[in-house]
């Protein structure tokens, strides 16, 4: 067998493992987006104890490596609940709750980048606070949040590589790790194929990060209102 054939034989299973990575990515983004939004609003508009709680949550999840969060969830959730929870759900929860801590900071920054005069103006026009948030603040904050959110998206794509520590979950990285030993057995060239094989694995992740970022900048351009560019800066 030629080197290319051996390589292809090992690359094909990566396509079978891709859906697992994509499922976890999709689920964790939903978890992170939902929880992150709630945390951001609680911090921007909530009372002091609630705000302190949110800050605590953020500090906790931003202070522990994704790998350790996954290991904690994987070894903690099922025993605590007493029912087996599928690996995909555990992975998405662990990374999603971590991402929520980062996303809430992005959203809070975006909300606070909208000048406070706008809220006053909306209230003085007779809008309720909720109405003002819904129809004045959020549409602008949402647009401001897209670029930093794209950064966070890239981060979580790369974090999904850590889910391979969950037993029985065969994602892109686990699949590649399982192929490394048999690949290096293929004398004489096998060991030299590890490098191109890992680079191909990297290309899968590269496609996910840049593909997603491309879509997000498309969204940013589609949503931008000509003549109404926000000058605000979003802190990360």
């Amino acid at each position: 067998m030629t080197a290319t054939e051996i390589l292809w034989q090992n690359v094909r299973p990566l396509f079978d493992a891709l859906p697992v990575t994509l499922e976890v990515l999709g689920l964790l983004l939903v978890v992170g987006l939902t929880l992150g939004t709630v945390l951001a609003f609680a911090q921007a508009y909530g009372r002091r104890p609630l705000r302190a709680l949110c800050v605590g949550y953020e500090q906790l999840f931003r202070g522990i490596p994704p790998l350790v969060v996954i290991l904690l969830f994987w070894n903690g959730i099922t025993p605590a609940l007493g029912v087996p929870v599928p690996g995909i759900v555990v992975a998405a929860l662990a990374l999603g709750m971590r991402s929520a801590a980062y996303q809430s900071q992005i959203f809070r920054g975006a909300i606070q980048a909208v000048p406070p005069g706008q809220m006053m103006a909306a209230r003085s026009l007779g809008m309720s606070r909720i109405q003002a948030i819904r129809s004045v603040i959020v549409p602008q904050a949402f647009r401001l949040a897209i670029p930093p959110w794209a950064n966070e998206y890239s981060s979580v794509v790369k974090d999904t590589a850590f889910i391979c520590v969950i037993g029985g979950l065969i994602d892109l990285t686990r699949q590649a790790l399982m192929k490394l030993a048999p690949l290096s057995m293929r004398r004489p060239i096998g060991t030299q194929l590890i490098l191109p094989y890992l680079i191909i694995l990297g290309l899968f992740y590269l496609a996910l990060t840049y593909g997603g970022n491309g879509l997000l900048s498309l969204l940013e351009r589609r949503l931008s209102i000509p003549g109404f560019e926000m000058k605000g800066k979003v802190e990360r």
Binding site: I199, L206, T209
Partner: peptide
């Protein structure tokens, strides 16, 4: 910036040594 650190570690530890 576009690839996971895990892969970069594996490249350096397993990928390059044969070369």
């Amino acid at each position: 910036r576009g690839t996971p650190l895990v892969i970069q570690v594996l490249v350096i530890y397993f990928g390059l040594p044969p070369y």
